[in-house]
């Protein structure tokens, strides 16, 4: 466990802890695990840790690390941090699979809320109902948040409904829009330009700037989409 992990500098105040070179659930779970460990046992001068698909980026304050007990003058600042992280990894050889939350996201599919649903259906020679069925049947995993606050990169889209992005991106995609872009699916946390095929919309706010954590979804969560009616949409609001 954790033996295959490598380190590389991102710049002079951040380094990457690399867990693999492809997107996989195992790599994702290791990253989640390590993220929890490093947040519980940060080193002096650590600023924050940012997980992505295959690595975690650790930002640090050069001056604080340099003045901390971590600093051995025979080693560079970077080497001192790597040494600390390696020890942390050795201490935590045991790997516990985390029980993650299952979050249901209500979606109203098609119509004015999902203007590209007819295109996606036609593209796959399926009915709109079949697209909705396949989109709601999967359990997705939040691999990482990025691109925009609260935007979750979800893994697990049924390949039979993967659809290329639009050739000309839309200038404004409404908040809560649920889209398919290539092999990916996700929800736009607020109005933004974008090129994904929009198949529906959720009334659930994904970005919660007044709360901490400020996002409805977090890396590691499991997600299911649930089709709702216009009446249920109104009740939700």
């Amino acid at each position: 466990m954790f033996k295959h992990i490598t380190f590389k500098p991102l710049n002079d105040c951040a380094l990457l802890v690399v867990f693999g070179d492809s997107i996989s659930i195992t790599t994702h779970q290791e990253i989640q695990q390590f993220h929890k460990i490093i947040e519980q046992q940060p080193f002096q001068g650590m600023i924050e840790a940012v997980p992505s698909y295959t690595s975690i980026c650790i930002y640090y304050d050069i001056v604080k690390v340099s003045n901390s007990p971590l600093r051995k003058h025979s080693l560079s600042i970077y080497e001192c941090i790597v040494t600390y992280l390696q020890k942390l990894l050795q201490k935590n050889e045991q790997f516990y699979v985390q029980t993650s939350r299952l979050i249901e996201i209500p979606v109203i599919y098609g119509g004015q809320f999902g203007p590209d649903l007819p295109f996606v259906a036609e593209y796959h020679q399926l009915s709109e109902e079949e697209i909705i069925e396949r989109h709601t049947a999967q359990e997705y995993i939040v691999y990482m948040l990025g691109f925009a606050p609260g935007f979750a990169f979800l893994g697990g889209l049924d390949e039979t409904i993967a659809t290329p992005r639009k050739e000309v991106p839309r200038l404004a995609i409404p908040t809560g829009s649920v889209g398919i872009g290539g092999q990916q699916t996700g929800v736009y946390p607020f109005e933004t330009p974008g090129g994904w095929q929009i198949i529906g919309r959720t009334p659930q706010a994904l970005f919660l700037p007044d709360k901490y954590p400020p996002t409805y979804l977090q890396a590691g969560d499991r997600v299911r989409f649930k089709a709702i009616s216009e009446q249920q949409w109104r009740d939700f609001k």
């Binding site: 600023i47 924050e48 997980p51 948040l145 691109f147 925009a148 946390p189």
Partner: peptide
């Protein structure tokens, strides 16, 4: 704004 990059906040 530090400590929230993991949530996609710049």
């Amino acid at each position: 704004r530090y400590a929230s990059q993991q949530y996609g906040i710049i």
